[in-house]
Design a protein around this nucleic acid. Structure first.
Lengths: 358, 358
DNA sequence: GCCTATCTTTGAATCGATCCAAATTGGCGG
DNA sequence: CCGCCAATTTGGATCGATTCAAAGATAGGC
């Protein structure tokens, strides 16, 4: 009964093998981190002891505390973890982030939870050197949590007026303007807007009042871009239905039902995301409406799927991957002043837009 | 010059605010981790001090060392980080892993690098409680590195003969058999195989010799399943070309070129991954060959894209997400014996397979 | 044989928290 | 006024490594 060492589950520490090899822990440490400064004979003795005792190498937990730097950045959202792998926009963004991390050797930690309490805890206890915050939904709360950690962080796609937070995004007003302009140039005059959330947990037709009170400035800016361009050609923008969705299939379809229940249905749909635009293409086709002959659709983002839909989607391209790369750099070189970038967008004309029926 | 505190960048520690609030560090710690046992007046005093000094809450680095558990699992591959977001198979797998992690509150750390040395370092220094190892390529090396950390880990898709490593996979022989059987039942007798790697860094037609020496038992098993079924109907399996690819677009196309350069080209292609199968569909279509009339194609995996290709792909469905979920559970409840699971597969007949031309 | 220069090794200090046994405080009944 | 119990607070020990100034060992020059 005495020496059933197999049952002894206490993990082996550096100090244990130091003692076993008859050297100080300082020397033992050097064997692993700077082997070249240790005399060969000693080095081998220590390594043999490590091998014999089943030592798995210096525990990063210990090293971490001493070193200070984790060498990983956290990517945070208020969605379930699977969002990163499901959503096309997120995937392209993550590809950009991955690239930059690969290049610098930094790791990626996914920090995310739909549950509010869990999210707070995850952010508080994330082992990272900084955060990239996806502000799709629940953005303000996320930013607040990230700020509390007192670590560098950058908000993506926030369009925040708050100049104290680092942010990277695109010129939403200009992008939306290009989308609308493209459609008015084609001759459209009857529009509907599928909008991203202006505030959390709400869907439906939005009022001017609600737009003014928007939590998400990005959504408001895109709408501003659309409407400015529409009024330029004389469209009565008070008559343009703006349906706020949760950027998912169900609420987008509900929006389309509402929009097309009108007796003067639109000939063109402005969707604030490709995700909604692609749902619209499908919905319209199921409804027997031809795109672009009966209805034109213009999206926003230019996710990969947009190029292969039927018909291919006309959209506003964001440099998504580039945004990701910039974000990583902003975290890792979080030096001087708060960095705020606004990247250019581009109109990509494909098959989902054309002149309205005469 | 004396008190330019703004320049003092040393982060605030728990001990600092304890001193400022005039309490012991023990009490200060309790204020954050078990506030209910601290007298209200004291609690508020400490919180006020924390606020005033810009304390970001207990540093997880410190907590971690004490607690021992990281509460995160690492997912390791020998690919660049972006693999997780690019590859369809990986994405479905990660969705399953995410789900299980969300449910248990565990985090996910992506541990990956194409570069060999970087990969070793990343695995050695990953802050995780265990690893899930993707054995697509470089699997053996990865398993070796993971084993050295002496942490629980499970290998996915390894088909290893080494019973000492936990592994989760599917019955490759049976799955491949079902694919081949489906085609022989339809009447096909001329075949070609697009194979996954048998060994690292090699592509081209493989010999029986090379198959026998395969590093990747999973690939070998799939081939065994194919050939066993083919020989059952009298096909001369020594004449069936088996082209080993790197499971990417370029090498798959090269394989197709080679295969169709023959004067007796196959009427059916057995692809060991949907990725290759989808490339084949595209290549055949560009070449003016009709699927399934001229050539039938059967894949393996059943990634989401397989259902929407033109034509939709006949394939062998793996319960990919389920594998991911099981893997997480295996790590978190890494109790008793080494767990080895083999999950069932299923033939999904879609439009890419049909009888050969009469 | 002594002194200096070089190469190795030592061991205390540190990183930032949590835990817990023991000490202190405060209230209350006798 | 004392003893006792419950509620708080204290401060030392611990988690597992790295760092670095100083001590010790070895070799070579004179």
């Amino acid at each position: 009964m005495a020496s059933l060492t197999a049952g002894n589950r206490r993990p082996v520490r550096l100090a244990d093998i130091a003692k076993a090899a008859g050297v100080s822990h300082g020397t033992a440490s050097n064997v692993f981190s700077r082997p070249e400064i240790v005399r060969e004979e000693v080095r081998e003795r220590v390594r043999a002891a490590a091998e014999a005792m089943g030592y798995g190498g210096p525990d990063p937990k210990g090293r971490l505390l001493r070193a200070g730097k984790v060498n990983a950045i956290g990517v945070a959202t208020a969605e379930p973890l699977s969002y990163f792998f499901d959503d096309p926009f997120a995937r392209v963004m993550m590809a950009g982030i991955s690239q930059a991390c690969d290049a610098t050797g930094a790791g990626i930690s996914l920090v995310s939870a739909a549950n509010n309490e869990q999210l707070a805890w995850n952010i508080q206890s994330a082992l990272v050197d900084g955060f990239i915050v996806f502000c799709i939904e629940g953005g303000s709360r996320l930013v607040e949590l990230a700020r509390e950690r007192k670590l560098p962080f950058v908000a993506l796609d926030l369009d925040s007026e708050d100049g104290s937070v680092a942010a990277i995004g695109v010129d939403n007003i200009a992008g939306a303007g290009m989308a609308a302009r493209h459609l008015t140039d084609l001759g459209h005059r009857r529009f509907a807007v599928l909008a991203l959330p202006f505030a959390d947990d709400r869907t439906g037709i939005v009022s001017a009042e609600q737009v003014r009170a928007a939590t998400y400035a990005g959504t408001r800016n895109r709408l501003t871009g659309y409407l400015r361009e529409l009024s330029r050609v004389g469209v009565d923008i008070s008559k343009v239905p703006v349906y706020e969705t949760a950027n998912d299939v169900a609420s987008t379809k509900a929006g389309l039902e509402t929009i097309f229940a009108s007796d003067a249905p639109p000939t063109a749909i402005l969707a604030m995301s490709d995700r909604m635009a692609l749902v619209a293409l499908e919905w319209l086709s199921a409804r027997g409406l031809n795109v672009p002959d009966d209805v034109s659709v213009v999206g926003f983002d230019d996710v990969p799927e947009a190029a292969v839909s039927k018909p291919p989607l006309t959209t506003i391209a964001q440099p998504i991957a580039e945004i990701g790369r910039l974000a990583v750099r902003a975290i890792l070189e979080s030096d001087g002043p708060v960095s705020r970038h606004q990247l250019p967008v581009e109109l990509i004309v494909r098959g989902s837009s054309g002149p309205p029926r005469a």
